[in-house]
């Protein structure tokens, strides 16, 4: 363990590179044209934050931080499930409404 303390600068560099990648992920989330791109990049950010937290847990020698990492694993999965279910539900409802209107319009023309 004292080796980790002695060579702490390696972990600092790894943390800085991961933070830069996090910013790039955020840019991908902002640019992303469709909702699925944003969801994928938020998922990626969650994974990177989990690696950052476990490296911090190693440096600070605290096992307590890994619970946060576990919470993030579950939450990013839950967010994906909830958003996909809610979004497809809303989209299909809108589609059915449109088809109903189209059928009514055709019925009026035939009469």
């Amino acid at each position: 363990m004292e080796l980790v303390q002695r060579f702490e600068w390696i972990f600092h560099i790894i943390l800085i590179i991961l933070a830069l990648m996090l910013v790039l992920c955020l840019i991908r989330a902002i640019i992303g044209p469709r909702i699925a791109d944003r969801l994928v990049s938020v998922n990626m950010m969650g994974t990177m934050v989990m690696v950052i937290i476990s490296i911090l847990a190693l440096i600070m020698d605290e096992g307590y931080l890994l619970d946060i990492c576990l919470i993030y694993a579950m939450i990013s999965f839950l967010a994906v499930v909830v958003l996909t279910r809610v979004y497809t539900g809303v989209y299909l409802e809108a589609k059915q409404k449109k088809e109903k209107q189209k059928r009514e319009v055709q019925k009026d023309e035939t009469h």
């Binding site: 909702i35 699925a36 999965f77 994906v80 499930v81 996909t84 989209y91």
Partner: peptide, 18 residues
């Protein structure tokens, strides 16, 4: 366990809404 399921859900979301 969770990551393949979430990727599948996102792909299905994309196919149904596009």
């Amino acid at each position: 366990l969770a990551s393949p399921v979430s990727s599948h859900l996102i792909a299905r979301l994309e196919v149904t809404t596009n």
